[in-house]
Every structure is written in structure tokens, then in C-alpha cells.
Write a protein that binds this DNA or RNA. Sequence first.
DNA 1: GGTAAACTTGACATCGTGTCAAGTACAGTC
DNA 2: GACTGTACTTGACACGATGTCAAGTTTACC
Lengths: 195, 195
Amino acid sequence: MSSRNSRKRILDAALDLITRRGEAAASMAEIAGAAGVSRQAVYLHFADRAALMLALVRHADEQRGLEREVRKIREASNAVAALREMVAVHARMNPGIWAAARAVDAVRRTDQAAERSWQDRLKYRLEGCRQLVARLHNEGSLRRGLDSSVAADLLWTLTSLRTWEDLVLERGWSARRYQTHVTALLLAGLTNAGN
Amino acid sequence: MSSRNSRKRILDAALDLITRRGEAAASMAEIAGAAGVSRQAVYLHFADRAALMLALVRHADEQRGLEREVRKIREASNAVAALREMVAVHARMNPGIWAAARAVDAVRRTDQAAERSWQDRLKYRLEGCRQLVARLHNEGSLRRGLDSSVAADLLWTLTSLRTWEDLVLERGWSARRYQTHVTALLLAGLTNAGN
DNA sequence: GGTAAACTTGACATCGTGTCAAGTACAGTC
DNA sequence: GACTGTACTTGACACGATGTCAAGTTTACC
């Protein structure tokens, strides 16, 4: 059963490679080399580059325990606490995810399968945002006069990987700084509490 | 003086091509073909793909009258009005800029010249955000307890092309919806006024 | 008519992706 | 101990894109 082993080794190597160098794209040959398999072996496990990148994101999610983190948000004692937790989860998880996500973002423009999977991911996160906004609404915390779908979209954008990238990678914010001020902005913009 | 003509024709064709198809990247050969010149002629005017893409963004800026729009922000009667105008400018300009900017964003990861130019652009916009925040501060409109540099970074992120992309392209917001709610969020998050 | 700049033509090197075919290593099975 | 299937390797190939080079052509200007 060397199959699963190779597959995992390829994903680990690719994740390591992409995460390590951040921006620069790793070629299939490099990934194969890093995993200690032939270039063709990669194609035995993944149809093409897009498929590998998609598997990579899922792999990164698993390794980081995404589900458990998401559960934490849902299990928060109230809506505002859930919102705080959501930002905290992003502050914790994004450093390990962004490189792989970036790679998919790059490939999705030419690959319809990658694009579909990307959209799925977006919808999934959007759904989480909707639920959180609904909870804010139910608890009377949603800013008066603010449409729920608008609030969900704003929450979704402000907790996106891109916003995180801008603030943390581009502007050099620490995880703590990111968490503090994005939370504050969301509380000020979406809830009644002025924080 | 066919030099400037060809250069302009190439830029026009490239902008048209990239804007039209949005996502998919246009090859040098396609751009040359669309401009009605040989592939090599493109290399006579632009050192490489990155140089072309950079020139493209500047070209798009000029065509859209970026400077005049930016001046409008500075000439607003007060800081809050300037903030409103800033979002309005983005709502107006981004549709014509984003495709070209996207192309540079894609190329900057492998090209240091593109990366530098991209950073210049970011700093320029950030400087505008800093000035606006300083003005808010001077006029006593900046939210109490909010650090100026934090406020500038938040303003910068919320008025970024990426945020615009998320809301308008991904979530299907109209320009008007974008302008209204991003402005409201900024007013709620960065100023004392509750909108 | 001569010259220089802009441009074309066609060839070429390089690199990355993806495919194909033949061979090897190593299970488990009779 | 041969038999077979699966995972994997090796090496070749087609394709498309970028970027370079050299030689020829057009055009405008003097």
C-alpha cells in the first residue's frame, strides 16, 4: 500500500515547498523531486496541476484541524463571542493556509475544476458568515437597519484570506494586531455595540 | 514617428483583450496579433511581459483620468466628504482597472521589477489613506482611541482592489451598493459619527 | 539616392505541462 | 518458485509560451 504513502508524501512535500518559498510557484518536477518520486508518479496520483493544488488546500485544512476550529466558532456562547472567535481562527489558521490557497487562486483562472472547487470553498465560508449574522440578528446584536445579506458579505470580505494577506503580509501586522483591529472594526460596523 | 503609435496600439489592444476576457491571460502573440503588429515588435517596445503589464496599468490609469479623480478626494470640503469621495472613486474606476491590475498581480510573483512597481503603487495609495486619516484626526472625526496608522491600514484594505473584487465581482454587488455599504462601514469603524 | 529607425520574418533555445510506452520492483497467490 | 497485478521509474515526445538573434524590408527624412 505504497499508494497512500506516495500521495501523502507528494502533498507534504508540495505544501512544504510552496509554504517555504511563499510566492514563487513550484513546478511539478520540483515537487516530485522534493517528495522523492519521479515526475510521472505525481501524475499517477493527480490528474494535473490544478488537481494537485486543490488536494493541497484540503490537505492543509486537515493538517491544521480546520473542522475543529470551525466548531469552536459555532459553539461560542453568544453571537458576539462567535464573531470574535471567527477572527481568531483566521488569525491562527491563515499563515498555514495562504500559500496553498494562493496557488489555487492562481490556477483557477485557467482551470474550471479549480474554479468550481474554489467557489465551493467560498460558498462554504459565506454560509458560515450568514449563520453568524443570523445569530447576531436573533440575539439583537445586528446593527439596526443593516441588511443581513449585506452584513454577511461584509463579514465574509473582512475575514477573507485577501484581507488577511493585505494586513499581515503586506502591512506587516502581527496576528494579534490583526485579530484586535479586525474584530473591533467588525463590532463597530456590524453590531450595535460600539465595542 | 510610428514608434508612439505602435506602442499605444499595443497597449490599447492589450487592455482591450485583457479587459474583455477578464480572467484568462493573453499571450504576447495574441496581444501582438490584436494590435496588428508582429510578436517581435512588442519586444521592441517592452522588455518583457512584466514590463508590458506595468505599462498597461499606467495606461489604464491615464485613460481613466486617475489624477483628476484623486484630486477630487483631496479637494473635498471636509474629511468625511473626502472619505466618501474616495470610495466613490473606487466604485467608478475599478471596473476599468482591475483586469490589468490582476495581470500585474499575477506576474509580480516572478518578476522583481513588477513587484517593485506594484509596491510603489501600494505605497502611493497608502499615502493617500494616511493623509485622509490625518485629516480625519485634525478635524476631530477620527474614532477616539483608534491609532492613526491602524486606521490608515484599515482604510487602505477596505478600499483595495481585492475588497472591491470580492464584493462586486464575487458577490455581485452593484457599484452603488458597494459605495453605500463600504462607506457606511468605514464611517462606523473609523469615525466617531455613527454614519 | 542614401541612411537610419521601425518593423517583419523565420529560426532557435529554454522551460513547463501533460502524455505515452516499455521496463522494473515488489507485493500476495497458487 | 513461477505468476500476476500494482506502484513506480525511465526516457521520449508533442505542445505552447517566453525571450533572443540575425537578416531582410519598409518608411520617412535629408
